[in-house]
Simulated scan of single mutants.
Amino acid sequence: MLVLVRHTQVQGVAGLCYGRFEAGLAATFADEAEAVRGALPAEIAAVYSSPAARCRALAAQLHPAPVLDDRLHELDFGQWEGRRWDDIPRAELDAWCGDFVTLAPPGGETFAALAGRASAFAEDITRRHGDAPVAAITHAGVIRALLARGLALTEAFSIDAPPGSVHLVTLAPAGAVS
């Protein structure tokens, strides 16, 4: 079983494009981390985390030795990282919104690339841990990509993954999510 956990709330990002941008934790972090802990299965074989500070902080609250895995990073928005959405040229933003699956922001990555690395992570976890519950502290993009398996990736953003949410998924052979 893979337990997908989105990092807790962050602060100072209202109106900003952020994926890999390092955002600070909200003042409610301790309470949110405790709520996540309470939502996890009693036994977790391992905890993996995105290298982002907001994920590492939560992972450290859940396990004494979380494993960092770059495949759990959020979408790389490239030149848009940390910029106000309103400051991104409208034509660039409209083009990306029209085809975010295969079109990358300038210097960034496509959602298909994110889905590929998320799938590779899930397949690796299946090989390493079998049916044992494993937590992955990550971001909405990774969670949506894994939960959208079997759907068109264009539908991924219809999946709700709020901060601090926990999503239990069963991994079939080869990392397929059910």
Rank of each mutant, 00 (worst) to 15 (best):
G116C: 00
A135I: 04
R83I: 07
R37L: 12
V36Y: 08
R149W: 07
R56I: 10
L75M: 14
D31V: 08
E22Y: 02
G116Y: 01
V101A: 08
H7D: 03
F121I: 06
P163Q: 03
A122Y: 06
R56G: 03
P105S: 10
A172G: 05
L153Y: 02
A30E: 15
A60E: 15
V13D: 11
E22V: 13
H129L: 10
E43Q: 14
V3W: 04
R37W: 13
A140N: 03
V47F: 14
R149D: 12
L146V: 00
T170I: 06
D69A: 11
E74T: 08
G107P: 09
A26E: 11
P89S: 08
E34F: 09
V36M: 04
A132F: 03
P66V: 00
A145M: 11
R54M: 10
F157P: 06
W96K: 02
D131M: 03
R71G: 03
A65L: 11
W85I: 09
L171R: 02
P64T: 02
G78D: 09
S49P: 11
I44A: 07
I125F: 02
E109Q: 12
A65G: 06
H73L: 15
Y18C: 08
V177I: 15
V36T: 03
A42E: 14
T126H: 14
A35D: 11
L72S: 09
P64R: 08
L62M: 02
A132H: 09
A115M: 06
V47N: 10
